[in-house]
Amino acid sequence: MKQKTNWPVTILIALGSLFIFLPLYIAVSIALKTPAELADSVFALPLGFHFENFANAIEATNFFAAFKNSAIITIVTVVFTILTNSLVAYAIARNMHRKFFKGLYYYFVSALFIPFPIIMLPLVKQTSALGMDNPGGLIFLYIVYGAALNIFIYVGYIRSIPMELEEAAIVDGCSTWGVFWKVIFPLLSPINATVGILTCLWAWNDFMLPLIILNDPADATLPLVQYVFQGQFSTDFNLAFASYLLALSPMVIVYIMAQKWIIGGVVRGAIK
């Protein structure tokens, strides 16, 4: 029997694809055009592929220095986020029957509902007073602010792991630390991947925290150096979009390769 086409769903998928690919086409097209071609039409195909726009954008933004800053901040943030947040979540998950740990869990989750603009100005003043207006302070804030969502995800997953595995390890002579690192942590691989990827995307693409925290222009990350194209009266849109594509490309590759971990891990973590 011939399957009937679901036209409403097909039309919605087509429209959704159009909304996704049209901005991408415009971005790539603008990045490969000259200013004269942009003046004629934004939507038209470029008459030639002006790859020199990418070289000029790299020079204008000191791209590789900013790339190094973003890479260091992102990698260190991901590593320490996984190590610290998983430990805290394990302690909470295995002690949810105690009022203190249950209250601590809801305390962390409640942070998800606090808008960032409310704490932005006090944050700037406090980090400046403590000498944390540098990449080290920025990394610390990423770890702290990411804890709310990460602990929510970790706790749900850890509670689904049978206690019998830990009891057997304790009988074999493992300490609490040994149980976590030898038994629990290896089982957290799917959630570790999810948390790592989400943290990576956030730390790499974030603009607001580096803008208000970093004091030295030499520490600027990739999102910050895009400011170089925001002139008072004019903008080199072709160079700007070339720079945007250069900054976005590493994370696009990461997301395409790891999207199954993101979706699967979030679902697993939110089940229980």
Score class of each variant (00 low, 15 high):
S234V: 13
P223W: 02
I139P: 01
F67C: 04
G196A: 13
K4H: 10
F43E: 09
G103M: 14
Y145H: 04
P162C: 10
N56F: 11
L246G: 07
V267I: 15
Q230D: 07
I213A: 05
F51A: 06
E166D: 15
V28R: 07
I158W: 02
I153D: 00
F63D: 04
A44I: 01
Q232K: 12
Y106Q: 00
K33A: 08
A91R: 09
Y157E: 03
A60I: 02
E164V: 13
L245D: 06
V78L: 01
M163W: 08
F229W: 05
I161Y: 06
A147W: 03
T235F: 10
I170K: 03
T61V: 04
T194E: 01
E164W: 11
A220G: 07
L211P: 00
A93C: 13
A14M: 14
E167L: 10
K33F: 12
Y106K: 04
E52M: 07
Q259A: 09
D172I: 05
I13D: 04
K272H: 08
N62E: 11
A169C: 09
V124H: 01
I114W: 03
V144F: 06
F152C: 06
F113W: 11
V9R: 05
A203P: 05
T77Y: 01
L245Q: 11
F207W: 14
I13Q: 08
F64P: 08
K99G: 11
W204N: 06
L248P: 00
S175E: 06
S110F: 12
A242C: 09
E52G: 13
L123Y: 07
N215W: 03
F207C: 02
I58L: 06
F43Y: 15
F108H: 07
I161H: 05
C174Y: 13
T34P: 10
I73W: 04
I143T: 01
G265M: 05
K2R: 14
I161G: 01
E37F: 02
L18C: 14
E164I: 14
V183S: 08
I197E: 00
A14I: 15
T199N: 02
F43W: 15
D206I: 04
G48F: 10
Y105Q: 07
N6P: 04
L18D: 00
M163G: 00
T176L: 12
F101K: 05
S243H: 12
R94N: 15
N215I: 00
I72Q: 03
T235D: 08
S17G: 15
N69L: 03
E52H: 10
N95F: 05
P223N: 13
L112C: 05
A169H: 03
K33C: 12
Y142C: 03
D219Y: 07
A93P: 09
Y244T: 09
V144D: 04
